[in-house]
Protein backbone atom coordinates (compact mmCIF):
# COMPACT_ATOMS: atom_id res chain seq x y z
CA UNK A 1 0.00 0.00 0.00
CA UNK A 2 2.92 2.33 0.65
CA UNK A 3 3.77 2.41 -3.02
CA UNK A 4 0.30 3.72 -3.86
CA UNK A 5 0.50 6.37 -1.25
CA UNK A 6 3.80 7.54 -2.61
CA UNK A 7 2.50 7.55 -6.15
CA UNK A 8 -0.64 9.48 -5.31
CA UNK A 9 1.34 12.01 -3.37
CA UNK A 10 3.72 12.47 -6.29
CA UNK A 11 0.87 12.91 -8.71
CA UNK A 12 -0.99 15.36 -6.51
CA UNK A 13 2.12 17.31 -5.58
CA UNK A 14 3.22 17.35 -9.19
CA UNK A 15 -0.02 18.84 -10.41
CA UNK A 16 -0.06 21.32 -7.53
CA UNK A 17 3.47 22.44 -8.32
CA UNK A 18 2.61 22.81 -11.98
CA UNK A 19 -0.43 24.89 -11.16
CA UNK A 20 1.58 26.94 -8.73
CA UNK A 21 4.20 27.61 -11.37
CA UNK A 22 1.35 28.51 -13.68
CA UNK A 23 -0.05 31.24 -11.50
CA UNK A 24 3.30 32.58 -10.41
CA UNK A 25 4.82 33.01 -13.81
CA UNK A 26 1.86 34.56 -15.46
CA UNK A 27 1.68 37.06 -12.62
CA UNK A 28 5.33 37.96 -12.97
CA UNK A 29 5.66 38.15 -16.70
CA UNK A 30 2.10 38.73 -17.82
CA UNK A 31 2.39 42.49 -17.73
CA UNK A 32 5.61 42.65 -19.63
CA UNK A 33 4.31 40.97 -22.72
CA UNK A 34 0.81 42.32 -22.80
CA UNK A 35 1.59 46.00 -22.66
CA UNK A 36 2.33 47.30 -26.08
CA UNK A 37 5.50 49.02 -27.02
CA UNK A 38 4.05 52.49 -26.66
CA UNK A 39 5.25 53.08 -23.13
CA UNK A 40 8.44 51.01 -22.98
CA UNK A 41 9.69 51.90 -26.39
CA UNK A 42 8.97 55.59 -26.01
CA UNK A 43 11.47 55.84 -23.19
CA UNK A 44 14.07 53.56 -24.69
CA UNK A 45 14.05 54.90 -28.20
CA UNK A 46 17.35 56.62 -27.59
CA UNK A 47 19.40 53.44 -28.02
CA UNK A 48 17.32 52.38 -31.03
CA UNK A 49 16.45 49.05 -29.47
CA UNK A 50 12.70 48.72 -29.45
CA UNK A 51 10.50 46.46 -27.38
CA UNK A 52 6.93 45.41 -27.81
CA UNK A 53 4.75 43.13 -29.80
CA UNK A 54 3.25 43.31 -33.26
CA UNK A 55 0.54 40.93 -34.44
CA UNK A 56 -0.57 40.24 -37.98
CA UNK A 57 -2.54 37.67 -39.91
CA UNK A 58 -3.83 37.09 -43.41
CA UNK A 59 -3.06 35.73 -46.84
CA UNK A 60 -1.07 32.56 -47.28
CA UNK A 61 0.20 33.99 -50.58
CA UNK A 62 1.80 36.94 -48.79
CA UNK A 63 3.05 34.75 -45.91
CA UNK A 64 6.40 33.72 -47.48
CA UNK A 65 7.35 37.40 -47.98
CA UNK A 66 6.36 38.29 -44.44
CA UNK A 67 8.16 35.27 -43.04
CA UNK A 68 11.35 36.39 -44.75
CA UNK A 69 10.89 39.94 -43.47
CA UNK A 70 10.20 38.73 -39.91
CA UNK A 71 13.31 36.57 -40.03
CA UNK A 72 15.47 39.54 -41.09
CA UNK A 73 13.76 41.87 -38.64
CA UNK A 74 14.50 39.55 -35.72
CA UNK A 75 18.16 40.12 -36.52
CA UNK A 76 17.91 43.89 -36.13
CA UNK A 77 15.27 44.17 -33.38
CA UNK A 78 15.42 40.95 -31.35
CA UNK A 79 13.18 42.31 -28.59
CA UNK A 80 10.22 43.11 -30.80
CA UNK A 81 7.89 40.15 -30.89
CA UNK A 82 6.31 39.86 -34.28
CA UNK A 83 3.77 37.08 -34.71
CA UNK A 84 1.92 36.50 -37.95
CA UNK A 85 -0.84 33.99 -38.60
CA UNK A 86 -1.78 32.47 -41.93
CA UNK A 87 -5.58 32.36 -41.96
CA UNK A 88 -6.08 33.42 -45.58
CA UNK A 89 -7.01 36.91 -46.78
CA UNK A 90 -10.63 36.65 -45.64
CA UNK A 91 -9.79 35.00 -42.34
CA UNK A 92 -7.14 37.64 -41.71
CA UNK A 93 -9.61 40.49 -42.23
CA UNK A 94 -12.01 38.84 -39.77
CA UNK A 95 -9.33 39.06 -37.09
CA UNK A 96 -8.40 42.58 -38.22
CA UNK A 97 -12.03 43.63 -37.79
CA UNK A 98 -12.14 42.00 -34.34
CA UNK A 99 -9.20 44.26 -33.44
CA UNK A 100 -6.85 41.35 -32.76
CA UNK A 101 -4.18 42.29 -35.28
CA UNK A 102 -2.12 45.39 -36.15
CA UNK A 103 -1.82 44.52 -39.82
CA UNK A 104 -3.55 42.17 -42.21
CA UNK A 105 -1.96 40.70 -45.33
CA UNK A 106 -4.12 40.40 -48.42
CA UNK A 107 -3.72 39.05 -51.93
CA UNK A 108 -6.61 41.21 -53.18
CA UNK A 109 -8.10 44.62 -52.42
CA UNK A 110 -10.24 44.91 -49.35
CA UNK A 111 -13.94 44.25 -50.06
CA UNK A 112 -16.63 46.85 -49.46
CA UNK A 113 -18.34 44.74 -46.82
CA UNK A 114 -15.04 44.37 -44.97
CA UNK A 115 -14.54 48.14 -45.17
CA UNK A 116 -18.01 48.70 -43.76
CA UNK A 117 -17.35 46.34 -40.86
CA UNK A 118 -14.04 48.03 -40.09
CA UNK A 119 -15.79 51.39 -40.07
CA UNK A 120 -18.40 50.01 -37.72
CA UNK A 121 -15.65 48.76 -35.42
CA UNK A 122 -14.01 52.19 -35.56
CA UNK A 123 -10.77 50.92 -37.09
CA UNK A 124 -9.02 53.22 -39.56
CA UNK A 125 -6.69 51.47 -41.93
CA UNK A 126 -4.22 52.16 -44.71
CA UNK A 127 -3.41 50.01 -47.72
CA UNK A 128 0.26 49.41 -48.55
CA UNK A 129 1.40 47.44 -51.60
CA UNK A 130 4.23 44.93 -51.04
CA UNK A 131 4.85 43.07 -54.30
CA UNK A 132 3.32 41.66 -57.46
CA UNK A 133 2.17 38.15 -58.05
CA UNK A 134 1.38 36.78 -61.48
CA UNK A 135 -1.55 34.49 -61.05
CA UNK A 136 -0.51 31.55 -63.23
CA UNK A 137 -2.81 29.37 -65.29
CA UNK A 138 -1.22 25.97 -65.86
CA UNK A 139 -1.94 22.79 -67.77
CA UNK A 140 -0.32 19.36 -67.95
CA UNK A 141 2.97 19.21 -69.96
CA UNK A 142 1.34 16.69 -72.30
CA UNK A 143 -1.32 19.20 -73.22
CA UNK A 144 -0.32 20.44 -76.68
CA UNK A 145 -3.42 22.42 -77.53
CA UNK A 146 -4.26 24.95 -74.82
CA UNK A 147 -0.98 26.83 -74.54
CA UNK A 148 -2.22 30.28 -75.31
CA UNK A 149 -5.66 31.26 -74.10
CA UNK A 150 -7.61 34.46 -74.41
CA UNK A 151 -9.59 35.85 -71.48
CA UNK A 152 -12.80 34.88 -73.31
CA UNK A 153 -11.61 31.29 -73.59
CA UNK A 154 -10.69 31.29 -69.88
CA UNK A 155 -14.21 32.46 -69.11
CA UNK A 156 -15.67 29.74 -71.31
CA UNK A 157 -13.57 27.17 -69.50
CA UNK A 158 -14.10 28.31 -65.92
CA UNK A 159 -17.67 29.66 -65.74
CA UNK A 160 -20.35 27.18 -64.70
CA UNK A 161 -22.99 26.77 -67.41
CA UNK A 162 -24.67 23.59 -66.29
CA UNK A 163 -23.01 21.38 -68.90
CA UNK A 164 -20.17 18.91 -68.62
CA UNK A 165 -17.25 20.69 -70.29
CA UNK A 166 -14.98 19.15 -72.86
CA UNK A 167 -11.92 20.72 -74.44
CA UNK A 168 -13.68 20.45 -77.80
CA UNK A 169 -16.45 22.74 -76.48
CA UNK A 170 -13.91 25.55 -76.21
CA UNK A 171 -12.31 24.98 -79.62
CA UNK A 172 -13.59 22.26 -82.00
CA UNK A 173 -10.04 21.35 -83.01
CA UNK A 174 -9.17 20.35 -79.44
CA UNK A 175 -9.63 16.80 -78.10
CA UNK A 176 -13.03 15.47 -77.18
CA UNK A 177 -12.05 14.94 -73.53
CA UNK A 178 -13.51 16.16 -70.26
CA UNK A 179 -11.71 19.10 -68.66
CA UNK A 180 -10.47 18.49 -65.11
CA UNK A 181 -10.41 21.62 -62.94
CA UNK A 182 -8.21 22.53 -59.99
CA UNK A 183 -8.75 25.79 -58.12
CA UNK A 184 -7.65 27.36 -54.82
CA UNK A 185 -10.27 27.31 -52.05
CA UNK A 186 -12.90 30.01 -51.69
CA UNK A 187 -11.28 31.49 -48.56
CA UNK A 188 -8.15 32.45 -50.47
CA UNK A 189 -7.50 35.81 -52.06
CA UNK A 190 -6.29 33.98 -55.16
CA UNK A 191 -9.78 32.60 -55.72
CA UNK A 192 -11.34 35.99 -55.05
CA UNK A 193 -9.00 37.70 -57.50
CA UNK A 194 -9.69 35.16 -60.25
CA UNK A 195 -13.39 35.47 -59.50
CA UNK A 196 -13.18 39.23 -59.93
CA UNK A 197 -11.13 39.54 -63.12
CA UNK A 198 -12.10 36.39 -65.04
CA UNK A 199 -15.40 35.08 -63.75
CA UNK A 200 -16.79 38.59 -63.23
CA UNK A 201 -19.13 37.43 -60.49
CA UNK A 202 -20.33 34.28 -62.28
CA UNK A 203 -20.00 30.89 -60.57
CA UNK A 204 -16.87 28.79 -60.89
CA UNK A 205 -17.46 25.40 -62.52
CA UNK A 206 -18.91 23.10 -59.87
CA UNK A 207 -16.80 20.20 -61.12
CA UNK A 208 -13.63 21.94 -59.90
CA UNK A 209 -11.55 20.42 -57.12
CA UNK A 210 -10.98 23.16 -54.53
CA UNK A 211 -8.04 23.03 -52.14
CA UNK A 212 -6.45 25.47 -49.72
CA UNK A 213 -3.18 23.63 -50.26
CA UNK A 214 -1.64 24.80 -53.53
CA UNK A 215 0.69 21.79 -53.66
CA UNK A 216 -2.43 19.63 -54.05
CA UNK A 217 -3.35 21.68 -57.11
CA UNK A 218 0.16 21.27 -58.54
CA UNK A 219 -0.03 17.51 -58.10
CA UNK A 220 -3.51 17.38 -59.57
CA UNK A 221 -2.57 19.22 -62.75
CA UNK A 222 0.73 17.35 -63.06
CA UNK A 223 -1.07 14.02 -62.86
CA UNK A 224 -3.82 14.48 -65.43
CA UNK A 225 -3.44 15.25 -69.12
CA UNK A 226 -6.78 17.05 -69.30
CA UNK A 227 -6.33 19.15 -66.19
CA UNK A 228 -6.19 22.91 -65.89
CA UNK A 229 -5.58 24.93 -62.76
CA UNK A 230 -4.42 28.30 -61.45
CA UNK A 231 -2.43 29.54 -58.45
CA UNK A 232 0.33 31.96 -57.42
CA UNK A 233 3.42 32.44 -59.59
CA UNK A 234 5.75 31.04 -56.90
CA UNK A 235 4.10 27.62 -57.09
CA UNK A 236 4.62 27.56 -60.84
CA UNK A 237 8.27 28.61 -60.52
CA UNK A 238 8.99 25.79 -58.10
CA UNK A 239 7.28 23.16 -60.24
CA UNK A 240 8.26 24.29 -63.73
CA UNK A 241 9.33 20.77 -64.73
CA UNK A 242 5.93 19.26 -63.89
CA UNK A 243 3.67 21.93 -65.34
CA UNK A 244 3.13 23.91 -68.47
CA UNK A 245 2.34 27.60 -68.22
CA UNK A 246 -0.49 29.02 -70.31
CA UNK A 247 0.04 32.34 -72.06
CA UNK A 248 -2.80 34.77 -71.52
CA UNK A 249 -3.59 36.81 -74.65
CA UNK A 250 -0.15 35.81 -75.89
CA UNK A 251 1.79 36.96 -72.80
CA UNK A 252 3.63 34.53 -70.56
CA UNK A 253 4.03 35.51 -66.89
CA UNK A 254 7.68 36.33 -66.18
CA UNK A 255 9.32 38.78 -63.78
CA UNK A 256 9.56 41.29 -66.65
CA UNK A 257 6.02 41.01 -68.01
CA UNK A 258 4.53 41.10 -64.52
CA UNK A 259 6.54 44.12 -63.38
CA UNK A 260 5.93 45.98 -66.64
CA UNK A 261 2.19 45.40 -66.30
CA UNK A 262 2.02 43.49 -69.62
CA UNK A 263 0.69 40.32 -68.05
CA UNK A 264 -2.91 41.42 -67.65
CA UNK A 265 -5.39 40.90 -66.22
CA UNK A 266 -3.90 38.21 -64.02
CA UNK A 267 -0.98 40.02 -62.41
CA UNK A 268 -2.07 41.32 -59.06
CA UNK A 269 -0.57 43.41 -56.31
CA UNK A 270 -0.14 41.94 -52.83
CA UNK A 271 -1.00 44.20 -49.91
CA UNK A 272 -0.77 44.63 -46.24
CA UNK A 273 -3.45 46.68 -44.51
CA UNK A 274 -2.21 48.44 -41.41
CA UNK A 275 -4.23 49.76 -38.51
CA UNK A 276 -3.61 53.52 -38.33
CA UNK A 277 -3.88 53.71 -34.56
CA UNK A 278 -1.28 50.96 -34.17
CA UNK A 279 1.16 52.83 -36.41
CA UNK A 280 0.62 55.94 -34.31
CA UNK A 281 0.80 54.43 -30.83
CA UNK A 282 2.91 51.33 -31.16
CA UNK A 283 6.43 52.27 -32.11
CA UNK A 284 7.40 48.64 -32.64
CA UNK A 285 4.56 48.15 -35.13
CA UNK A 286 5.53 51.28 -37.01
CA UNK A 287 9.15 50.23 -37.11
CA UNK A 288 8.28 46.75 -38.33
CA UNK A 289 6.04 47.99 -41.15
CA UNK A 290 8.70 50.51 -42.15
CA UNK A 291 11.25 47.69 -42.25
CA UNK A 292 8.79 45.59 -44.27
CA UNK A 293 8.38 48.27 -46.93
CA UNK A 294 12.13 48.87 -47.13
CA UNK A 295 12.83 45.16 -47.65
CA UNK A 296 9.69 43.84 -49.32
CA UNK A 297 11.15 44.06 -52.83
CA UNK A 298 14.23 41.94 -52.09
CA UNK A 299 12.33 39.48 -49.94
CA UNK A 300 9.58 39.12 -52.54
CA UNK A 301 12.13 38.21 -55.21
CA UNK A 302 13.86 35.81 -52.85
CA UNK A 303 10.68 33.79 -52.34
CA UNK A 304 9.42 33.81 -55.94
CA UNK A 305 7.38 36.99 -56.33
CA UNK A 306 8.00 40.15 -58.34
CA UNK A 307 9.13 43.46 -56.82
CA UNK A 308 7.15 46.66 -57.29
CA UNK A 309 8.74 49.61 -59.10
CA UNK A 310 10.96 51.41 -56.56
CA UNK A 311 8.84 54.58 -56.47
CA UNK A 312 5.87 52.59 -55.17
CA UNK A 313 7.86 51.58 -52.08
CA UNK A 314 9.03 55.17 -51.56
CA UNK A 315 5.43 56.29 -51.85
CA UNK A 316 4.34 53.63 -49.35
CA UNK A 317 6.98 54.79 -46.89
CA UNK A 318 5.77 58.37 -47.26
CA UNK A 319 2.19 57.30 -46.61
CA UNK A 320 3.35 55.39 -43.56
CA UNK A 321 5.24 58.41 -42.24
CA UNK A 322 2.04 60.41 -42.55
CA UNK A 323 0.37 58.01 -40.08
CA UNK A 324 2.84 58.52 -37.31
Amino acid sequence: MKKWKYLTMTAVMGSALMLGACGGESAQNGNGTETNASTDAGQEASDEKLQGSVAGDGSSTVAPIIEAVVEEYAGTQPDVKVSVGVSGTGGGFEKFIAGETDFSNASRNIKDEEKAKLEEAGIDFTELALAYDGLSVVVNPENDWAQDLTVEQLQKIWIEDGTEKKWSDIDPSWPDEKIVFYSPGTDSGTYDYFDEVILDGADLVSAATLSEDDNMLVQGVAGDKNAIGFFGYAYYLENKDKLQIVKINGVEPTNETIEAGEYTPLSRPLFTYVKNSAMKDNEAAYDFIQFTLENAGDMAEAVGYVRLPEEQYTEGLKTLEGLK
Binding site: D57, V70, K81, V86
Partner: peptide, 9 residues
Protein backbone atom coordinates in the same frame (compact mmCIF):
# COMPACT_ATOMS: atom_id res chain seq x y z
CA UNK B 1 -8.06 30.21 -32.65
CA UNK B 2 -5.73 31.93 -35.14
CA UNK B 3 -2.48 30.78 -33.52
CA UNK B 4 0.32 32.49 -35.50
CA UNK B 5 2.90 30.47 -37.43
CA UNK B 6 5.46 33.10 -38.30
CA UNK B 7 7.32 34.17 -35.19
CA UNK B 8 10.90 34.37 -34.05
CA UNK B 9 10.58 34.33 -30.27
Amino acid sequence: LGIPVILQF
